[in-house]
């Protein structure tokens, strides 16, 4: 097994809201190995973005974060603001969903990249500019030296996302967190952006965490997958195992609702995502689960190895083998 660069253990995130505390993340365990591309899947509200914003230390002060996050052996939960600043952008960086608003409209593209470089490396401004142009070239922006002098509004959405990637990889981080990087883009552009991310991963050996609600995206690029539901992991494993024979009813449902060529009908998961102010007792998925029994309503399952997958379902062993229509 490869070296683990990021180890998340028992991570909890709670927000205080007027209607009571809201536990958005309820004990997550997750490992990222060096150089791999880990997909994190879940519906909106499943806590996938919040977990990684907590890892980055980017949550607002009213969020309470507990648990352990080790980045290359360094504990990030409870680290000082100064320590977090030195980690962010250097060892750990992040790409966001909406490239249209992620770049500061009043600064030149080149400056926004070199700002990232110079905040963690002692570079002359000339060297930083030169490096910024190289980075633009790496992420596939034509005429990088001209484009570096332009402003974000002169770039298309896909081009802006490339710039955001260039900023994120500027200091060659150990882990790159990509939060729904393709959701706001056209389908044709999506594929290009995924390609850029893969290229970066291969070229620099960066571990990538790809957060998405789109299993299709995961299937295309991920090595391993981690499925989240209602602030907990429900299943994880390699992409092949998980897509071949998912164990957890939620994962089965996700895969069954995926459109595929030749498949006759989509089978949606019934019901609605849980209200996180007051999540269901026991396994949070039980109200929507066709296999749920009384035990599921009282006991909170945790990840257990089941074959070549890790699954958080008490009944995983008894369930019939999943039939995924292909």
């Amino acid at each position: 097994m490869a070296e683990k660069v990021l180890e998340i253990r028992d991570l909890h995130v709670t927000f205080d809201t007027p209607s009571g505390p809201l536990e958005a993340v309820r004990g997550i365990d997750l490992d990222v190995e060096a150089g791999e591309l880990l997909g994190v899947v879940g519906e909106s509200g499943s806590g996938k973005s919040v977990s990684f914003l907590a890892t980055m230390g980017l949550l607002p002060a009213r969020a309470r974060v507990t648990g352990s996050v080790l980045l290359a052996g360094e504990q990030l939960i409870g680290a000082s603001a100064k320590q977090m600043r030195s980690v962010r952008g250097r060892l750990l960086s992040m790409i966001f969903q909406d490239p249209l608003s992620a770049l500061n409209p009043v600064h030149r593209i080149g400056n926004q990249i070199s700002e990232m470089l110079r905040s963690h490396q002692s570079l002359s401004s000339r060297d930083a500019d030169k490096r910024a142009i190289e980075l633009l070239d790496i992420v596939g922006i034509p005429q990088p030296s001209d484009r570096a002098r332009q402003y974000p509004h002169e770039f298309s959405g896909g081009m802006r996302q490339r710039v955001v990637i260039a900023i994120a990889i500027a200091n060659n981080p150990k882990v790159l967190i990509a939060d729904e990087p393709t959701t706001a883009l056209d389908v044709t552009v999506q594929a290009q952006i995924l390609e850029v991310i893969e290229r970066v991963q291969e070229r620099f050996g960066t571990a990538v965490v790809l957060i998405t609600h789109d299993l299709g995206v995961i299937a295309r690029v991920a090595d391993r997958v981690n499925v989240m539901y209602a602030g907990r992991n429900v299943e994880q494993g390699t992409i092949d195992n998980l897509f071949d024979h998912p164990s957890h009813p939620y994962t089965r449902g996700l895969l069954a609702s995926l459109p595929r060529p030749g498949k006759q009908r989509l089978k949606p998961i019934t019901g609605f995502p849980p209200n996180m102010v007051n999540p269901p007792k026991g396994c949070a998925f039980h109200p929507r689960c066709e296999f749920a029994t009384d035990v599921c309503k009282s006991e909170l399952p945790s990840l257990v190895s089941y074959g070549d997958l890790q699954t958080a379902c008490i009944r995983a062993k008894e369930l019939p083998k999943a039939v995924i229509l292909t």
């Binding site: 980017l58 603001a81 960086s93 608003s101 992620a102 700002e115 963690h120 900023i167």
Partner: peptide
Amino acid sequence: NSDYMRTARSKGISERR
């Protein structure tokens, strides 16, 4: 509250900057 402020924070630069 804008996204680019979050980007700036994710760069690890000082709050003052």
